[in-house]
Design a binder for these strands. Structure first.
Lengths: 224, 224
DNA sequence: TGATAAGTGGAGAATCAACCTCCGCTCCGA
DNA sequence: TCGGAGCGGAGGTTGATTCTCCACTTATCA
């Protein structure tokens, strides 16, 4: 009500209040990362060990908290793309980017949701994406120029690929959160114009019994 | 549209009631395929042009309606797998299966949800999957024996691949519901032990402007 | 060491959306 | 014609979430 956690606060928070603010941010990171943005602020409060009121006094609503949290993660994604472009080997740069960006998305459900779905913090997300787009275009174009990647792969395919892989990761998160690396391998081998052998899968397949657990661990959107 | 008459009732429905029952089933098919299982029975009633009470009189709850509806779709999936195995060419059989099963899942959001997530009609779904599993194992195994598919691909990878592709289809459904075929192409090329060229993409890439529409059309899980 | 204002917890009000029931009325069909 | 199957849809119920309020606690400073 009083403030919007604006940049220049005339008066600093009391020591205990600041401590709680940090606790809330840490708890929110934990909760949003593992359970996604649909987690309630009550959940965050419980995880932080403070009352809900305390959460609402610091952050007017969930969006404000989410934005505060994910700003730097989006920055990390952009950095990953730029690092890929800095790699002198065009193929290696692209693959590394795909794997690292995939890892960020696969291990952070909240980040995935904020990036892939409209709703929260559109402005910041939009800005992050605007920064990524040219880098991705360059990454793909450079590898194509080198003949390392099939010529008809489009830059817009990359977000879809990341989306699919992170969907697989989320789907299997309770049982084998790394299984998506197999499908990254498949996609990467599929992107080459031609090849002699295969890139070995970095992780083993899921055993048949595992499939049941995956499904059971993934209840329908809301409880029936 | 298939008729889904239940078991022989001692006394048949009145003519108008039977007509409404069919209307409800048709409406439910429409609503569940496009909006998924989270659509409410009120939605179904509206689409059918009947009152909610009428829906609930015929189907005790959403699960009963969903089960009645999806029984034959699951059958269609099994049939697709069996048809793939009947194909004399092991590679062609596998690829055709992947594409056709993908199409079923990509065009039917409700089917995707009932198959991929626990919740509704577990028994029937379970039975359908039990029938598919050996067929898929055979499809993959046969193609591997022929040296057409990388040897370390596991049968359990297939459901994941279908899941990922249908996730992409759902994500882009408002803008380019066929875009997933590009990623199927990529995955298929990635499955080969080696290859000279690439399978051409059957559909064009999404233009950059399209990405924005995709995101906007995909609102967050719940509104803030 | 108070005095005092900042800060806190958490019950519960407000809201929302979906599920399902109920009952007065309609209209089928013998 | 008339009994009863069938109908619509307002509204009760449930459950989850968001957010408010205020009596109580605690940091800070004179």
């Amino acid at each position: 009500m009083t403030d919007l956690t604006g940049p220049a606060d005339p008066r600093p928070l009391r020591a205990d209040a600041e401590r709680n603010r940090q606790r809330i941010l840490r708890a929110a990171a934990e909760v949003f990362t593992t359970r996604g943005l649909q987690a309630s602020l009550d959940d965050v409060a419980r995880q932080a060990g403070v009352g809900v009121g305390t959460v609402y006094r610091r952050f007017p609503d969930k969006e404000a908290l989410a934005e505060a949290l994910f700003e730097d993660r989006i920055g990390a994604l952009v950095a990953v793309a730029e690092r890929g472009l800095a790699n002198p080997d065009s193929w290696d740069g692209l693959v590394t980017f795909l794997r690292e960006a995939g890892t960020l998305l696969a291990t952070d459900r909240g980040l995935r949701e904020i990036l892939m779905f409209a709703g929260y913090g559109k402005d910041r997300v939009e800005r992050g994406k605007a920064r990524m787009q040219p880098v991705i275009t360059a990454l793909v174009g450079r590898a194509q120029q080198d003949g390392k990647v099939r010529a008809d792969l489009a830059p817009t395919d990359i977000p879809f690929i990341e989306f699919m892989l992170s969907a697989a990761a989320e789907y299997a998160s309770d049982v084998r959160p790394d299984i998506w690396l197999r499908y990254l391998t498949l996609v990467i081998d599929g992107m080459r114009p031609a090849r002699d052998g295969v890139t070995p899968f970095p992780v083993p397949a899921l055993a048949p019994e595992g499939m049941l657990k995956v499904m059971r661990g993934m209840p329908a959107r809301r409880s029936p």
